[in-house]
Amino acid sequence: MRWRAYGEHAALLDCASLAESMAAHATVTSARPPGIAELVPGARSLLVVEIPGSAALAAVRELLADADLEHPPEGRSREITLDVTYDGEDLELVARDAGVSVEDVVRLHTGAVYTVAFTGFAPGFGYLTGLPEPLRQPRLSAPRTRVPPGSVGIAGEFTGVYPRVSPGGWRLIGHTRTVLFDPRADPPALLAPGDRVRFRSAG
């Protein structure tokens, strides 16, 4: 891990892997040192923003220097279930490339428990880890210019849900009617880093 200054009141921790980034985030979230204004995890990083005048950055550095990131704290995470209709445009492609039936794709996708590793790309979009190995497939060779909101997709080691209309190259396997981002809600985004997510077939 390597720390880099990020303005006057923040520091960016460069991590060696997604697992290390998630472990660092879980460790800091569990300890909750006073004076932290914001934590922003990424695929290989953790941004720590402190309240000006606090000693939060120093406390976080000390905390992570002594932490066992191989065994991070479990913490208290929310569990969210999303009902999905498995009718995506790429469902048969995913099944074919995995060497399984469409029914097996649904069974595999709904049988796992996922963790929101980080958010980004679009407001409310969560990158969920825990995807079963047969479903870990590459993005489409040609991204779509328009992906409908609620589309459930997979790409590499992640699965996720498009919260709004946008371009996208993930393989689409279904859709959910659950609202992932509402600017009038508090908080606006349904998913947050550390949350556990399950998918349930809506038939």
Rank of each mutant, 00 (worst) to 15 (best):
G153L: 07
P138N: 05
Q137I: 14
P163D: 05
D97Q: 13
T110F: 14
V116I: 12
V147K: 04
L135C: 08
V94I: 15
A67N: 00
H109I: 07
Y86Q: 10
T81K: 03
D90H: 06
A155P: 09
Y86A: 14
P163M: 02
S141A: 13
E103H: 12
P134Q: 10
G124M: 08
V161K: 01
R136I: 06
P73M: 08
G99H: 06
G160T: 08
E157G: 02
G174E: 03
P72G: 01
R164A: 10
F121P: 13
G126R: 09
G111Y: 01
G111P: 02
G150D: 07
S151Y: 00
L131Q: 07
R96Q: 14
L140V: 04
Y114G: 00
V105I: 15
E62L: 08
E133Q: 11
S151H: 05
A65S: 05
P73R: 06
P149Q: 09
Q137V: 15
G124N: 08
R78H: 05
A95T: 09
A67I: 00
T159L: 03
H109C: 09
Q137T: 05
E103W: 05
E103V: 07
E157P: 02
D90Y: 02
D90S: 10
L63P: 01
T129A: 11
V94L: 15
L131H: 12
T115H: 09
L64V: 01
L172K: 07
T176V: 06
Y127F: 15
F158Q: 12
R144L: 11
T115N: 08
G111N: 13
T176S: 12
T119F: 04
G160P: 10
E89D: 13
T115F: 01
E70W: 02
R78W: 11
D83Q: 12
R171C: 03
G130D: 11
E103M: 08
G150W: 01
Y127I: 14
T81L: 05
Y127D: 01
E70L: 11
A117D: 13
A112C: 09
I173R: 02
G120N: 11
V84I: 15
D97I: 06
A155T: 11
P132D: 12
D83R: 15
P163V: 04
G75E: 10
D90L: 04
H71R: 13
Y114I: 15
V165P: 06
D104F: 04
R107D: 11
P138L: 04
L64T: 00
D83G: 14
V100W: 08
R76G: 12
P163E: 02
R76A: 13
P134R: 10
S141Y: 03
T119D: 01
Y86M: 14
H109W: 00
L64D: 07
L64N: 03
T129E: 14
A98Q: 07
V102D: 07
E74V: 14
T145S: 14
